[in-house]
Design a protein around this nucleic acid. Structure first.
Lengths: 234, 234
DNA sequence: CTTGATCCTCACGCGACGTGAGGCCGCATC
DNA sequence: GATGCGGCCTCACGTCGCGTGAGGATCAAG
């Protein structure tokens, strides 16, 4: 088999086969008198082996090591750890990036300073979330916020409405306030979906980061208490 | 500010600042008579801007473009899409890799051919799952299997036990078989956790891939029916 | 014998720097 | 003023897995 045929058969390029030969991965076992590469059946098998291992994302050097030594367990486990690390880093990056992109929607013509502030803020928020929730939970919450974006957008209006009733001195038991409290709980529900642990962690986070929550337009403790008194049970 | 001081202050290396200057990203606005770089306050701010944007994973060229043009929305959105693509690819890779590593535990001294077979099989299984479940569901199922590995390991024994009762011609209503069916449902439950959609999709996948399931040591339709008749309701 | 396809061997390019090599500059000490 | 040491300068090569030519030899068919 000549390189072109082998390349066509495997979907690789001729250059790739040349490169693998340079690296000592697949050296054709023969050449014609004029120097053309000739791959025999064993060489072809070897190529498919390299292809398979390369699909696991292994660097060529590791592949040649594996084909020589055969210590798959250790190498693949180490590689898996490394992939996990890259995955975690990329996932965290995606979170920051998505947060920034989302906020950019609200600013018509953002200046550089706005973007830098957003990066800072989103990073801080994500770090804070990471302290209170496991990576899986964070991913879940992000996914939910993405799908229910419109829902989350109701918070500012709702908070403003509650603030207005508080300032007006309305009794928490007033039907209007009870209605607001019901909306409040529906929004909360869309966040933790009935998982009490998620709700508890969220509340702990809110209590321990009161300042940041208020700075971000969130409710203060007085409002939380007011809503609590407005609930039928409270 | 000299380059060493700036490097120390920002946590960058001197080489990095040199490189950024080569790329035109941050060019110190002055030099001493002897050629030493002198960074003024504006240069330092510029460095911090580049640092922030670099943390979003942007290539240097995109950063210099952004600092010049300021079209953040489009660039960051495009970058987010690219990050998502990489994340998806890396996630799928991780699935394959984890599957292979897991199976390697069961083979004492794996040969290359064993590993290649595993790669093939795991890839096929993952592709099949991808047809029936969303990426999020796949991730969830993988996470569950990782935490409940011991639970999943009960399947082979359970299937063998059911097979034995079937071969012995035991009546499905026999208490022993009913007990096996209960174990069966507990294992299934640990898989879909009460989510009926997950259960339905799993069943559809099993039906449409009967051959593969049996080849992988899974139950055949006769066994499913037998278990169904053994349930109190059936 | 010609022609078009295939093959060969260099060798540079990519991205974001790390890592020297070899030499100049600045400040402190003797 | 000489010495020494640390910081600074400018090349320039290496990384990883090839892509992409350049320039020339070879092969199979007409």
């Amino acid at each position: 088999m000549k390189v072109g045929e082998l390349a066509a058969a495997t979907g690789l390029t001729v250059r790739t086969l040349h490169h693998w030969e340079e690296r000592g991965l697949v050296v054709p076992s023969a050449r014609t008198a004029s120097g053309h590469r000739v791959y025999d059946e064993g060489d072809v098998r070897r190529v498919y082996q390299v292809v398979a291992l390369r699909e696991l994302g292994l660097p060529l050097e590791a592949i040649s090591g594996l084909l020589a030594s055969g210590s798959f367990g250790a190498v693949l486990a180490a590689h898996l750890e490394q992939v996990d690390a890259r995955l975690a880093a990329l996932h965290s990056l995606r979170g920051t990036l998505a947060g920034v992109v989302e906020r950019l929607h609200d600013v018509p013509d953002p200046a550089l300073s706005d973007v830098l502030e957003m990066i800072d803020e989103v990073s801080r928020v994500n770090d804070t979330f990471a302290q209170y929730f496991t990576p899986e939970q964070v991913a879940e919450l992000q996914a939910r916020r993405a799908e229910g974006e419109a829902t989350a957008a109701e918070w500012p209006g709702l908070i403003a409405a509650v603030r207005a009733e508080m300032d007006a001195g309305t009794d928490p038991a007033d039907p209007r306030v009870r209605e607001l409290a019901a909306r409040w709980d529906r929004l909360l529900e869309s966040f933790h979906r009935g998982d009490p642990e998620l709700g508890a962690r969220l509340d702990r986070m809110r209590v321990e980061n009161t300042g940041e929550v208020i700075a971000a337009g969130g409710p203060d403790q007085a409002m939380i208490d007011y809503i609590g008194r407005a609930r039928p049970s409270g």
